[in-house]
Simulated scan of single mutants.
Amino acid sequence: MPRLDDHCWSCPCAHGPRHAGRARASAGGLAAKVGEMITSSVSRPSLLVARAAPDSDPSRGPGGTGAGGGSASWHHRLVQRGLVLFSVGVGLALVLNLLQVQRNVTLFPEEVTATAFSSAWWVPPCCGTAAAVVGLLYPCIDSHLGEPHKFKREWASVMRCVAVFVGINHASAKLDFANNVQLSLTLAALSLGLWWTFDRSRSGLGLGITIAFLATLITQLLVYNGVYQYTSPDFLYIRSWLPCIFFSGGVTVGNIGRQLAMGVPEKPHSD
């Protein structure tokens, strides 16, 4: 028979303090692990924020993605586009002015016509500067008016526009009409056809007319001061078809400037 003392030693009451100590120890260890997990989960986001904070700082410099770097990059692309447009203007001025001089449409002094390109030294840089201004102005006006130009936006269309512009200039020097009025009306129709074929924007039409007016006024002042002259002038010292040439030239250079600005972000605004 089991003895009474066996039951007494196996009673749970005898092991109560020992089991209570183990339970407290295990509970304390569990609480410590839970505390470590909470601490690590709280500290990780703060560590990520601390690491990400320098990347979003706009004062990192030109290599960062802040306002300073974006503004410097925008100005760099603006200068590049201006140089390309300046080169285009110089090239067109040399070719087209040579054609006008050879056909005795434009007359320079004798010491000027003896040069390599039969043109005054100031003609190419002036035309290049005008091309840079006009080519940069067209996309700027489009963005301010909120009317992005989307008609025939590809380089093939731009090259065809340049070819038509050169053809209009060639026609002004080669075609013979009974009077200058007929030639002027023909070139006006060709210039409007160029705008309708390759532009069709209200901003392009308005800028083309403004450029034609200002360029014609400047040309009249130059001819009046004896810098050079036109044969058979019929419109205040110049030929009546000259505004048509300036209009078609503005539309052509504007299309080149728009194509160069395609995909370029707008100027960043600093807070």
Rank of each mutant, 00 (worst) to 15 (best):
residue 6 D to Q: 07
residue 242 L to S: 05
residue 222 L to N: 12
residue 94 L to W: 12
residue 196 W to I: 04
residue 65 T to L: 07
residue 71 S to K: 07
residue 97 N to F: 01
residue 104 N to C: 03
residue 129 T to Q: 09
residue 144 H to A: 11
residue 120 A to L: 08
residue 198 F to R: 00
residue 149 H to A: 10
residue 37 M to C: 08
residue 92 L to N: 00
residue 180 N to T: 07
residue 91 G to I: 01
residue 67 A to Y: 08
residue 14 A to S: 12
residue 9 W to S: 07
residue 184 S to P: 00
residue 66 G to F: 03
residue 185 L to Y: 13
residue 89 G to R: 00
residue 56 S to C: 08
residue 138 Y to D: 08
residue 80 Q to C: 08
residue 73 S to I: 00
residue 131 A to Q: 06
residue 138 Y to E: 06
residue 190 L to K: 06
residue 40 S to T: 10
residue 105 V to W: 08
residue 101 V to I: 05
residue 159 M to E: 03
residue 88 V to H: 01
residue 230 Y to Q: 10
residue 256 I to M: 09
residue 73 S to T: 03
residue 158 V to L: 02
residue 114 A to G: 15
residue 150 K to R: 15
residue 75 H to L: 13
residue 194 L to S: 06
residue 91 G to E: 00
residue 226 G to I: 04
residue 245 I to E: 12
residue 178 A to E: 09
residue 94 L to R: 10
residue 147 E to H: 09
residue 57 D to Y: 11
residue 137 L to W: 13
residue 113 T to G: 03
residue 94 L to I: 14
residue 260 L to K: 13
residue 85 L to H: 11
residue 41 S to R: 11
residue 142 D to S: 15
residue 270 S to P: 06
residue 238 I to C: 13
residue 257 G to S: 07
residue 208 G to S: 10
residue 125 P to H: 12
residue 107 L to V: 15
residue 213 F to Q: 06
residue 13 C to N: 00
residue 86 F to S: 05
residue 242 L to K: 01
residue 228 Y to H: 15
residue 196 W to Y: 15
residue 10 S to Q: 14
residue 222 L to W: 02
residue 244 C to H: 14
residue 51 R to V: 02
residue 267 K to T: 06
residue 114 A to V: 04
residue 59 S to R: 15
residue 224 Y to Q: 14
residue 155 W to P: 03
residue 80 Q to I: 09
